[in-house]
Amino acid sequence: MATTNEKAANGTTQSHDDAFTVKAGLAQMLKGGVIMDVTNADEARIAEEAGACAVMALERIPSDIRAMGGVARMSNPAMIKEIQAAVTIPVMAKARIGHVVECRILEQLGVDYIDESEVLTPADDQFHVTKTPFTIPFVCGCRNLGEALRRIKEGAAMIRTKGEAGTGDVVEAVRHIRTVNAEIAAAKARLASEGSLGIADMARQLGCDAALLQQTAELGRLPVVNFAAGGVATPADAALMMHLGCDGVFVGSGIFKDAKTPEHAAQRARAIVKATTQFTDMQALVDASIEHGEAMKGISNAGLRPEEKMAGRGW
């Protein structure tokens, strides 16, 4: 990344390297944790008390966005401010893909991270937001390595592998982390056998930046933190994503959808935090699964028509 200087929001002169260190650094501090979708201050407090490492403020959880149809947009800033006032942990919020102005509004609000998200209706069918000029960090979704590195090249400081949000079906999240892992392994092998020329060729095929691909091959992982998202509904689902190499999980509808009472939602939230932080401890997973109780009913991914899927949004 270039090391030209720019004026940061607090009036300091920070290089792009420093700016990116600070953006990616917050994601590094979220590792091993659970980021929960919440729609009001009460839900945000339930998440914080359960041990969530951050919350995602949005007007409707993905399963309700799916059910209601229509155009899904950035949430009302009044509701985001209410959530910011209620908790001390980081607050994230979603903007539509390509919607620069929604992103600037969220930055002005002082949220801690922006999710440029396919769960909302895309505003631009060709371009994602150029994220580097923002002071605020971005997380973006991916289905494969090329998509992840395109987002990082645009300035994303955190990646989440896309699952099918709002379904409670984990299969798409698993498919996409497996794809990313396989492509990273292929890049490593390519670097070992053919060096930078092989990487340049692979970068052309994937449609991504060769330097970032080389860095990924050398590290043996994505160069930024990668969480799982979409369809994670139970403690076992969360632990599965950790076993597949994710750095943490986003849980959307899985906590509050079909929860009988706030206490039931709190129990589910605690159980998913337990399963994520102790994903190698099988007895903890048994306890968490019992504590979690009945999961959201869900929708099988196999029954969705292609146009009903959200994960395919983004380019």
């Binding site: 300091t12 953006k23 910011q84 801690d112 002071t135």
Partner: peptide, 14 residues
């Protein structure tokens, strides 16, 4: 005092 400087926007390198 937690979050002394504010939210992520106020994070910095010095």
């Amino acid at each position: 005092v937690r979050n002394r400087y504010g939210t992520q926007i106020q994070s910095f390198v010095a």
